[in-house]
Design a protein around this nucleic acid. Structure first.
Length: 465
RNA sequence: GACCCCUUCGUCUAUCGGUUAGGACACCAGGUUUUCAUCCUGGAAAGACGGGUUCGAUUCCCGUAGGGGUCGCCA
């Protein structure tokens, strides 16, 4: 082995979604592992923006922001593919001069018609332009042509993919695809090869929707006598119903996960459990698995996106966050400055509530009732006459209590239920409702401790007003 | 339709031909002498199907079925 260079090469024609993040992550992880041995290994980012019609700045932003959020850090400056167009054109010119490519004047309509016909006749013919290549007049044209790769009819290409294994495709199955459009702009198929070569990419790690393209690109490399990089085609993620990722199950902007209260580390951890790395303990960081990570161990079958597992992992990470981290995340990412409130109260509340919150949004919702009393959703009709009598008695008892400690509160509450001969919940539910706006939730003693004696009594009194 | 890839509990996965097929999420039951949740213990749950090779197949090979990807002057 030697040093490696990988790249993540999205086109800015859609938001960065969780499927592409997984691809980026594998590229990043592979380099990170290689760096242990070879310091000059690199993970690069290239934006494939040659389709100006579909490229939009907001998608570019989405890619950058998403990767940054997840700490999938690329090196060097961002490569903008469109800046290399002249080089791509020159390479196409070389291929033309060396008879590795040819000029074609077939119109889109003609080809569509042929394609339709072949499908109808169930013929397995991919190569639609069959006449231009050997037509001298066409080949000496100076304008109004597109350029296609010349692909031999015989033989086959075998790609030894690091994940897929050996895959063979007959040359006759490969279209003499276009590398330069009629307007002389390069297509993806050409640009990707030229840029990967220029950037010195050693391992092309991408979704297996590109596996078929690899054979076309193989011909470009060969025609140019360029070294062929290692191909690594990883399976795509699916939605939880087995279909393609849709908005409902995760094809939205990855940053939405942040907006919905997920931690970057949780997302990364979750993705790593999806056919990339497996262990008994499924909570792990990138760094902890680097030494055991192998491209060849990546599963060949696609995996489905599952929120349940993600939630489980996210809860684990939230539990282990310290309170300052949470407060900072609230402030930076959720427009919520907890430092405006009593520090002591915040600390006590977070200590208890972070153990029961799947997402940071959830945690915020859980903590808010403790901080802001006036927004409590509670209605006098929710509490029965009997409960109100009990509440008043209970209030008088805790009013006299000066040792405001969990054990003490538990004890006096227990005594109260014994003396009144009631089940715990007969006082538990109404007191929880009055103090937090919810009839179910954390233990009464915890609520009283978080709020403190003064606030507790105030809230009870306010309810009776 | 053609080509390529895939197929172990509902989901993510482990298994270097010989295992009571293991773990995790979710689910169910019990416990943690208060609800919800956490946590703990236990439970149910899988080799798509059919052939071969082999003393022995989830594992290797072939076929079938099912799923996915690709077939653009998009990337």
């Amino acid at each position: 082995m030697s040093s490696v260079i990988t790249r993540f090469a999205p086109s800015p024609s859609g938001f960065l979604h969780i499927g592409s993040v997984r691809t980026a992550l594998i590229n990043y992880l592979f380099v990170k592992k290689s760096k242990k041995e070879f310091k000059d290994s690199k993970f690069l980012l290239r934006i494939e923006d040659t389709d100006k019609e579909r490229s939009e700045n907001k998608y570019f932003e989405s890619i950058i922001n998403g990767l940054k959020w997840l700490n999938i850090n690329w090196e060097e400056e961002i490569y903008i593919q469109s800046k290399n167009i002249n080089l791509h054109k020159n390479i196409a010119e070389d291929l033309l001069n060396n008879k590795k490519a040819f000029k074609c004047i077939c119109t889109k309509e003609q080809l569509d018609k042929k394609r339709e016909k072949y499908v109808k006749e169930r013929k397995n013919i991919k190569r639609l332009c069959t006449t231009c290549e050997n037509n001298i007049d066409i080949q000496s044209l100076k304008k109004d042509y597109c350029v296609r790769m010349s692909i031999p009819n015989n033989g086959s290409i075998v790609i030894d993919d690091l994940v897929q294994g050996k895959v063979e495709v007959l040359n006759s199955e490969i279209d003499n695809f276009i590398i330069l459009r009629r307007d002389s702009t390069p297509t993806y198929m050409l640009s990707v090869v030229v840029d990967d070569n220029k950037m010195g990419i050693t391992h092309i790690i991408r979704g297996d929707d590109h596996l078929n393209n690899a054979f076309k690109q193989f011909h470009i490399y060969n025609s140019l006598n360029w070294k062929i990089p290692k191909f690594v085609h990883i399976p795509l993620m699916h939605g939880n119903d087995g279909s393609k990722l849709s908005k409902r199950h995760g094809s939205m902007d990855i940053i939405e996960f942040k907006n919905n209260g997920y931690l970057a580390n949780s997302i990364v951890n979750y993705l790593l459990t999806l056919g990339i790395y497996s262990s008994k303990n499924e909570i792990f960081s990138i760094d902890s698995i680097i030494k055991d990570f192998e491209l060849s161990k990546i599963n060949k079958s696609p995996s489905k996106f599952d929120y349940e597992k993600l939630n489980f992992i996210n809860l684990n990470y939230i539990k282990n966050l310290n309170n300052n981290d949470i407060i900072n995340l609230f402030k930076n990412d959720y427009n919520f400055d907890a430092t405006n409130f009593d520090t002591n109260l915040i600390t006590k509340a977070l200590d208890i509530l972070k153990n029961r919150s799947n997402t940071l949004l959830n945690l915020k919702d859980n903590i808010l009732p403790f901080l802001i009393a006036k927004n409590l959703k509670r209605n006098k009709n929710d509490v029965s006459e009997e409960s109100i009598i009990l509440l008043k008695k209970y209030k008088d008892i805790i009013d006299k209590e000066n040792e405001w400690e969990k054990e003490k509160i538990e004890r006096i509450t227990k005594e109260f239920t014994n003396n009144e001969n009631i089940k715990f919940n007969e006082i538990g539910e109404p007191i929880r409702l009055i103090l937090t706006g919810k009839s179910k939730g954390i233990p009464i003693s915890d609520i009283l401790i978080i709020l403190g004696k003064k606030e507790t009594l105030e809230r009870i009194n306010n309810f009776f007003i």
